[in-house]
Amino acid sequence: MLRTFYRLLKFTFQNFFRNFWLSFVTVTIFVLTLIIVNAMIFMNYVADRALESIEDRVEVAVYFTSDASDTLVKSAQGYLLGFAQVRDVRFVSAESALETFIERHAGDDVILSSLDEVGNNPFGHSLVISAESPENFPFLLEAIETPEYAPFIEEKDFTNYEQVIDNIKTLNDRVRVGGYILAGFFTLVAILIIFNTIRVAIYVHRDEIGIMKLVGANDWFVRGPFLLEAVLYSVLALGIVIGLLTLAFNVLDPWMARYFSGIDVNVGTYFMQNAVPIFGTQLLLASMLSLLTTAVAMRRYLRV
């Protein structure tokens, strides 16, 4: 059994190297397809991490009118903290808001002089809400509109964040669709190339196949090398892709750490930790695809 397998492997490598350039093109197309698949996984992961990070940072401010007492605003804070969807509610007093405003516009005399004209503190108290998820904000902003608090609410600031998150999600979805189309295209090319490679291999080995049959090789001994060759393409391509990804992550990870400062986007570690599901699935799918294509090519061109 082991001896037969060893001989099948020997014939497989002979097939591979006798049609080296065809094998090279097949593996290259496979590599390109897998690179696109991994680029999609990469983009997906980075976008998810970026979104998670943005979502974590999203805060919504509820501004109260200047006549709302701090007791009323603190009562609203307590009310909001009672919701499971709320992670934190920070009370910002009118005085603190004024200080922040003055600090922010320290060099702007026009604004500061207009403050003087107003005379008193134009700001009211406000609450800064962090939710477990940005999806909870519409509900929370609705919830605070009770008869007790609604008359004192001057403004609720949420829409901008919602837009930003939506934009990122839309962009990510579009990139994903583009990735699917590109991966589909390359998969199709890979199928055609494998089909042709096996067809040529069968043609090149027609004498050998004829002699194999003549001297009593069974069907699987004739078919085996072609099927193993199909698996070999997948294994080689994935090996090359893993090598390229390792190199790419060495360069990309430090750069991305700088670019996404504060966001933990360690793609190399992510791929490493999920190597078995990520690359195992790719190996399985790529092998199945090439085996299936080879089987079709053999059915059509190989007479045993």
Partner: peptide, 11 residues
């Protein structure tokens, strides 16, 4: 040897 190889004969 090829005829023996495909039949799984020992080397």
């Amino acid at each position: 040897a090829f005829a023996l190889e495909v039949a799984g004969e020992h080397s």
